[in-house]
Amino acid sequence: MEYVDPLTGFRVDGRRPNEMRQLKGEVGVVARADGSALFEMGNTRVIAAVYGPREVNSPTLISAVQNKGQQVNSKEALVRCEYRMAEFSTGDRRRKPKGDRRSTEISLVIRQTMEASILTDLMPRSQIDIFVQVLQADGGTRSACINAATLALANAGIPMRDIVTSCSAGYLCSTPLLDLNYLEDSAGGPDVTVGILAKMDKVTLLQMDAKLPMDTFENVMGLAIEGCKAIATYIRESRKINGLNMLKIADPSVHVTHRVRLAGWMDGFQCSGQEI
């Protein structure tokens, strides 16, 4: 199958290879949570809710956490994460067992990525719980979860070093492609998921389960990083608007050159109500 049309250069959904899908973010979607957010990358839709920081005092909880290999340190906040996929999120409404290997792995990835940006030492003896659920899966769920978690943490007012954003890129038809959708993702080509601390320009997450020659890998990873930066810009540019408390984030007036273009349809996202 041709994932990049050889004559028009367009991908199956009409994007160019270095274009991202339409982004949409919304905060405060779960009233009872301390912070929450909905994040969409095209048809991939993810919801995140944050509870905390709150006091950690239950010894049973601590031992349960320790069983998972997580160190509990009274001087730092304890971050926990639970990832779930809604049964209706994929086309085939298959019943997925709770706590399967993939979920456990993604939970761990999200937690570690978030820990890298949360100023945990400002919140000793406390715990932060992040719940992430995939409502609709169309490729790039991992990245969407991280972006949603970032928004929810910011919404909860949890102090962070920097915002973490994530994006994936793949390599199909000898072309690096940004932000694979499900169809492209299931082509079986190599794909790289990257998470960065946007302002500090540091990579906090890098995942790839395929082999790629070094120079190709660098191109693909570079494209994914550009994607992360574009998402960060999207979040920053909309942060002044309502509800979203990101005062703890350092001033984002950093100049980044964007090689990535958001697709031509993006002539301005909506800024009304709770949408960012």
Binding site: V12, D13, G14, R15, E19, R21, Q22, G42, N43, G91, D92, D138, N181, L183, A263, G264, W265
Partner: peptide, 14 residues
């Protein structure tokens, strides 16, 4: 099995 597939289709002005 029958499943519903929803795909995005981006339209452009370039």
């Amino acid at each position: 099995r029958i499943q519903k597939v929803v795909r995005e289709h981006y339209l452009r002005d370039d």
